[in-house]
Design a protein around this nucleic acid. Structure first.
Length: 643
DNA sequence: TGCCTCTCAACTGAA
DNA sequence: TTGAGAGGCA
């Protein structure tokens, strides 16, 4: 029997299908390596092959490799592909920045004064906390979202609330401080904190940092162009010299400046680390010539770029189609007609995607698809874990897991209705503040000795007893949820409603219960729910995908429908007023380059936004696509439009 | 005091 | 179209 574990054989197998640049990127291990990887040039292949190469050749154990991505989807895909390439890859630290940081923070949370079972709060909760604070100082809650994003921007830059760069006399600066103390008292952290706390631990406890530096022999970073300052600081601490560091990115696909990403990080790479290698991947394996060149002509209008020319030696293929619609309704019909067309030509639904600029645009397509019987799925939009009933149940679980989680308490204290309204909750707040205890503790104390109306008092006591008994019990997360649904009457109330909406909610809850079965501990589940927002994983079914351009990054389809290319919609008004047209253009570039063979761009002359009809000009990006590669109105869809 | 209904304003992108 | 807040009723 031949021993296939011989290094040479292994490398033959791993490296055989790589082009020279990819090959070089995989085997370069000593330098700080930047791989500038254009759309569709095989960067995931490089990353996964590199990890397999390191493992199979014994340069490091799997557990000594850290691979960071931005989205859960990217992490999942990498994991799947890795499993096919090498064994033992389960021990690789592979995940999003946030999940990796959560993992590190769990082990060292005492060093920053929070408990090991801290909860991770989302933007919603952040707004609630800031809203509370605003109310306390008699200001309008309406500005809460603005303050939250200001605080988040500070965090993205690595600026903590006591940093000198925060103007402590400004409103936002003051709120930042209070906010930070408040959520710490809830044993909660927000997304930004995950990075900040870990950086803080690394800074103040060199021995901990040293441990991780030694541990991670190789660090691979996906989508480096979208790292923010805080992530950059974190990375530099782990790999100060860049030895064993490999960052992959494409400045033309930087689309997250709004959440603090700094393209500067990728542009500065060569200066940051000595002995840097930069490898460009420019050969595209995804799209046909016309699509690629149309995309290139578009992105060439950006001035701020490193500059890359992606090319293909494949066929020229179809041109990019551009169609004008009278309104959004007709636009959806055009897309459906084209879907039918392609379907007849053997393109499966699963290989088609409608890419929208903003979430609200999905509705029109959803309705049309339902009416015309086109099977579809929506990615993004209202996420599973964002649904009211799911958040309610999770809030119960959070409160069981972490009694200090006052946000969870407030969410469910009167859900389902148990007669404990706003004024009672205000009383809890006052008591909690006075005695420096959590809301739950305050409620418990008030139930025990407060002057409450008997009805209120007994329902409050029931609530407290239920939660305390559940905290003592040792049943699994799924059973815990079942008990809650039963004892609180939550499910009963829903089923008695007899509406379609309530019916879907019940189904969602069933789905949640099913998901809960996969977890042994409550903590594990809660972390999953806060970090992995998209519960709808890769579905094997044959469905047309509807999603935003942002979530499309990294995906690819035979056919892509780029809709709503109008001034104000795309480029979006808010981006225009921010003067961020180049980022919108990169978003368009990302969109076009998702298509392997077919791309259709549509725009509507009239569009109803909320209740008003407005007339928009065609997007400027349409004129920027080279006409040699587009089949604008001359090239209509052959199929008659369905009525 | 809590709950229900009506009115009015908002609304990019995501871990 | 939806969600939050105000105001009126039980």
């Amino acid at each position: 029997m031949q021993n296939s574990a011989q290094p040479l054989d292994v490398n033959d197998r791993l490296l055989a299908s790589l082009n020279p640049q990819q090959h070089e990127a995989v085997v370069t291990l000593d330098n700080a390596l930047l791989v500038l990887s254009g759309a569709g040039t095989g960067k995931t292949k490089v990353l996964t092959t590199k990890i397999a190469y390191i493992i199979e050749n014994g340069y490091a154990f799997p557990s000594q490799i850290l691979a960071v991505t931005f989205s859960n989807r990217a992490a999942r895909e990498m994991k799947e592909r890795l499993l096919r390439l090498a064994s033992g890859v389960g021990d690789v630290w592979l995940g999003t920045f946030h999940s990796i940081c959560a993992r590190i923070l769990r082990s060292h949370s005492d060093l920053v004064g929070i408990s090991g079972n801290f909860t991770i709060i989302d933007v919603d909760d952040q707004s609630k906390v800031v809203g509370q604070i605003l109310k306390e100082i008699n200001l309008d809650k309406k500005i809460a979202n603005g303050v939250v994003s200001k605080i988040s921007r500070w965090k993205d830059k690595g600026i903590t609330s006591d940093d000198a760069r925060v103007d402590a006399s400004s409103l936002e600066g003051r709120i930042y401080k209070i906010y930070q103390e408040r959520i710490a008292s809830y044993d909660s952290v927000d997304f930004g904190d995950l990075l900040l706390y870990v950086a803080q631990i690394f800074r103040k406890h060199p021995e901990v940092l040293q441990k991780y530096r030694q541990k991670f022999r190789f660090i691979l970073v996906d989508e480096y162009q979208d790292t923010n300052m805080s992530q950059y600081i974190w990375l530099r601490m782990l790999s100060p010299l860049g030895v064993g560091l490999c960052c992959v990115g494409d400045d033309d696909q930087a689309i997250y400046s709004w959440r603090g990403a700094e393209v500067g990080n990728i542009l500065r790479f060569e200066k940051d680390f000595q002995n840097t290698r930069v490898i460009r991947l420019e050969k595209n394996y995804r799209s046909v010539g016309n699509i690629l060149e149309a995309a290139s002509s578009l992105i060439a209008n950006n001035e701020n770029r490193l500059g890359k020319t992606i090319w293909t030696d494949g066929e020229k293929g179809d041109k990019v189609l551009i169609r004008k619609a009278y309104n959004g309704f007709e636009e959806a019909k055009i897309v459906v007609a084209r879907i039918d067309d392609l379907c007849r030509n053997g393109v499966p639904y699963g290989e088609m995607a409608v890419l929208v600029r903003a979430g609200f645009q999905t509705r029109e397509f959803e309705e049309r698809f339902l009416a015309d019987g086109i099977p579809y799925r929506i990615i993004g939009g209202l996420k599973f874990y964002d649904r009211q009933e799911i958040k309610d149940i999770i809030a119960y679980l959070r409160l069981i897991y972490q009694p200090n989680d006052s946000l969870a308490f407030e969410r469910i204290i009167n859900v389902p209705r148990r007669g404990i309204g706003a004024s009672a909750v205000a009383g809890f707040h006052a008591h909690a503040r006075r005695n420096n205890v959590s809301l739950f503790q305050a409620a418990k104390e008030i139930a025990a000795n407060g002057l409450l109306r008997p009805v209120l008092r007994s329902s409050l006591q029931d609530f407290v007893h239920l939660l305390e008994s559940l905290r003592q019990s040792d049943v699994g997360p799924a059973d815990l949820a079942k008990i809650i649904l039963d004892k609180t009457g939550y499910l009963k109330q829903l089923t008695s409603e007899q509406t379609i909406e309530a019916q879907t909610r019940v189904e969602n809850i069933r789905e949640l219960l099913r998901a809960l079965e996969d977890f042994d501990s409550l903590g594990e589940f809660i972390e999953h729910a806060s970090l992995v927002v998209d519960a709808n994983g890769s579905s094997p079914q044959d469905l047309v995908t509807i999603m935003t351009l942002h979530s499309a990054k990294g995906a690819e389809f035979e056919a892509v429908f780029l809709v709503g290319w109008e001034e104000g919609v795309f480029p979006h008004n808010l981006s225009l007023s921010e003067g961020n047209i180049e980022e919108e253009r990169r978003l368009a570039y990302v969109g076009v380059t998702r298509a392997k063979k077919y791309a259709l761009i549509t725009y509507a002359v009239n569009r109803r936004i909320y209740n008003q009809w407005q007339t928009n000009l065609p997007s400027r990006f349409l004129a920027e696509l080279s006409s040699r590669h587009t089949g604008s109105p001359l090239h209509p869809v052959k199929t008659p439009i369905k009525e």
